[in-house]
Design a protein around this nucleic acid. Structure first.
Lengths: 234, 234
DNA sequence: TTTCATTTGTCCGTATGTATC
DNA sequence: CGATACATACGGACAAATGAA
């Protein structure tokens, strides 16, 4: 229920229904006909998306993000939603689609067993006909028994949700610099050994099983990763 | 109150008091003599730190982070705590300590007014005698009337907390690539125009005022920025 | 396979504290 | 100072997933 309220608030903010301040909790309670606790839970979600600043005794203020970068990827929201970049939709070009067994390094990176069979998907992704990223992702077959060619060319996460009701629960992510291999450099039309920013992510089901992990190399110029925190002043 | 519980749980986890699973909520309720809601609030905090995986019907499992990188900076916790890197404490070498007026670019980056007077602090930071980062930070004098030389050489945030009870409430952060200027390259002993990973952060008071913003260029090899999310499956 | 106790998730109502205006 | 608005805490109820009997 608080999910629905949160989603509606987010959509309303994106649609500029509220441009400066949100209604008070009391008003939202009346508007949505739910308890104050539920409203606050929903506001927690919106806040976690980095869209609000909350001031005790005053109210909830909408954060107008300084568009200092052309493209901003919001780390504060779920990984699967990261496909929705503010600049527009991403096109995919599949480079590799195969089944492999995890070697030592992949097993460590993906928190899976060595030798475990996984789908391997390598894709180049484009934003406005410009190379956005090179994405190497893996789906253990123990959890994902089948992956269609069609889904790989479009949205894998949508396919998993519709076909198997597989939805990500939590994710662990690492941003770091990485040197390109010859093969990667060729695909991205970059120099070999060039240092590039990349994002390693592991996605878990609610049960704690890994259903996907990936490494994404970012090529888009002037790309920024955004996140938002609240101090806990302990 | 839930802050105290959260802090104690975090310390206990770091001290390996719990290595695999946390006690159940019911047990924690008895242990801490607070309501279940309070325990759950505390667990939310620990979870937000990226230390837990929660499984309905089963329990709270402790995340053992794969130490794939020597140094991991946890973005999920507050910016001020980012000074505590897992590899050890940071030493500072002050390069510049001055009062300047915000120009166009700084005003935009820091969400302040053009011409606003601010302390400017540029520091090289070292981890185990190895260059860790170059940090350029700014403190608007409207909020921070005085900054001592001593604090700049050590912990500015601690000083602000003790002297003025100034504590960060929320922060907005951007990770991106940036080319080094000649001056920066010289300080970091790098090539001019080299692309390097950096973190732009703005820190707000509870009132919504900016009391600090900064840009940090990361030099340490094999450094990773970590963050953790929970999907909201709306 | 079904059942059932355990454990976490959601929602409610209420009360009190604290910062803002 | 008083009214408003967000923060914290409690207790209770039921839902949903897990895991063992």
């Amino acid at each position: 229920m608080y999910h629905e309220v949160a989603e509606e608030l987010i959509q309303d903010i994106l649609a500029n229904k509220y441009t400066d301040k949100l209604p008070t909790e009391k008003e939202l309670v009346e508007q949505y006909q739910v308890s104050r606790n539920t409203i606050r839970k929903a506001l927690d979600v919106v806040f976690a998306h980095g869209m609000l600043r909350r001031v005790r005794g005053s109210g909830y203020y909408i954060i107008k993000k300084p568009l200092q970068s052309q493209t901003v990827l919001n780390l504060s929201i779920g990984f699967d939603k990261n496909s929705m970049v503010s600049g527009g939709p991403l096109r995919s070009k599949v480079v590799l689609f195969d089944v492999i067994e995890a070697d030592d390094e992949l097993a460590r990176r993906g928190n899976v067993h060595v030798g475990e069979k996984m789908y391997q998907v390598v894709r180049l992704r484009y934003l406005k006909d410009k190379l956005y990223s090179l994405e190497e992702s893996y789906f253990p077959r123990a959890v994902v028994p089948f992956l269609s060619q069609e889904s790989v060319e479009h949205s894998i996460f949508s396919f998993l949700k519709e076909a198997y009701q597989i939805t990500g629960n939590t994710s662990e992510n690492y941003v770091h610099m990485q040197a390109l291999t010859a093969r990667q450099a060729e695909l991205m039309e970059r120099r070999k050994d060039e240092q590039i920013m990349c994002l390693d992510g592991i996605n878990y089901l609610a049960s704690g099983k890994v259903f996907n992990f990936s490494r994404t190399y970012f090529a888009y110029p002037d790309l920024a990763l955004y996140y938002h925190t609240q101090s806990l002043d302990i």
